[in-house]
Design a protein around this nucleic acid. Sequence first.
DNA 1: GCATCATATGTACGCTCGTACACATGGGAT
DNA 2: ATCCCATGTGTACGAGCGTACATATGATGC
Lengths: 176, 176
Amino acid sequence: MARRYDPDRRQRIIDAAIRVAGRDGLAGLSHRTVAAEADVPLGSTTYHFATLDDLLVAALCQANEGFAAVLDASGALADDDLAAGLARVLGDWLNGDRPGAELEYELYLAALRRPALRPVAARWAEETGARLSARIDAVTARALLALMDGICLQVLLTGGSYDEEYAREAFERVIG
Amino acid sequence: MARRYDPDRRQRIIDAAIRVAGRDGLAGLSHRTVAAEADVPLGSTTYHFATLDDLLVAALCQANEGFAAVLDASGALADDDLAAGLARVLGDWLNGDRPGAELEYELYLAALRRPALRPVAARWAEETGARLSARIDAVTARALLALMDGICLQVLLTGGSYDEEYAREAFERVIG
DNA sequence: GCATCATATGTACGCTCGTACACATGGGAT
DNA sequence: ATCCCATGTGTACGAGCGTACATATGATGC
C-alpha cells in the first residue's frame, strides 16, 4: 500500500528484471517474479510493461550498455595494437563480470526467437560496429564483431576459459 | 489405447519435439505439447524423458547433425579454396533451410543457461573443429569455427541476409 | 478548488505446466 | 505356463502464468 507515486517505479522494475534474469535466466522472468523482486504489486509491472516483450526490450536496451561501457572505458579503440586491445577488453568483460556477460548474451540471443528484440540486437551490432569503424574499414569491423561474438560464444557455451593470446592472434589475422 | 508396444515410441517423441521447437521455439516445448504432436499420451513423454532437459539433450544431439551433414555433403572440406568452400556451405545451410538453422542455433544457444546441454554443445564444437583440423592447423580451425558462429549469429539475429562474398573474405583472412 | 487522468493496487479467472501415481498390458525369461 | 517388469495409459493436484478489470490516489492544468 505504501510508496504510491514512485517516480522511479519504471526504472526499478527494469533493474529488478535484470536481476531476476541474471539469477534465474530468461525462463524465470515473469510479471510476478519481477514484481516480487522489485517489491511492487503485480499490477504495477503489467501497467508499465503490458507484455513481457516490452519488459525484455527495456532490459536488453539497458544491459546492452554493459559491454559498450567496458569497451569505451578500456581505451582499446585507441590502443596502437587494436587486436591486442580487443583481446584485452574481451578478457576484462568475460572474466570481470561473468554473470553479467552471460545475461547480456542471453538477452542478445533471445532476439533469435523474439522478433521484438531484433531491432535492439541489430542496433547494438550497428553501434558497436560503428565504434570499430572509427578505427578500421567497415568490412573488417563487421568481421571483427562476428569473431568477437563467436569467441564469446565458445567460452560461454562450453564453459571453457578465455584464451586472450588466441583471441589476439585471431583478431590480428582478420585485421590483416 | 491403441499402439501399445511401439518400438519407435522414443524416437517419435524426439522427432515431435524437434518439430514443436522448430515451429514454436523452445519456449513452446513442454511434455504436453510434444505428446500432442507425437500423438501419444502425456504419460508417455514423461516416462521416456523424465525431465525436459532429458528431452532437450536428445533433440539437440539429433539436430546437431544437420549442419554436420551439410558440411560433409558439400565437399567444402575437400575444396581447393577452403575459404570459398566454407562460405558456400554456410550459405547453403542458412538459405536452404532457414527454420532448421534457427532451430539448431536455438538449441545450441540454450546451452548458455542449461548446464545439461553444455557437454553436447561442447562436443559439437569439438567435432566440427576436428573436421576442420583435418584441413588446417588447430588454432586456425578454432578461429574459423568462432567466425562461422559469429557470422551466422549476425544473420539470424538481425534478420539480415547472408553475404557470401563477405564471409569468404573474412575466412580467407583468418586462414592467412 | 476542482476536474482530469496517468499511475497504482488488489483480486479473480481460466489456462498450462511439471509431477506423481495407480493401474493396464504383454514380451521375454524361467 | 507362469511370473516379472519394462512399457504404456489416464487422471488428478497444486502451482505459476498472463490477463483483465474495478477501484483508489494524487499530480497537474485550469
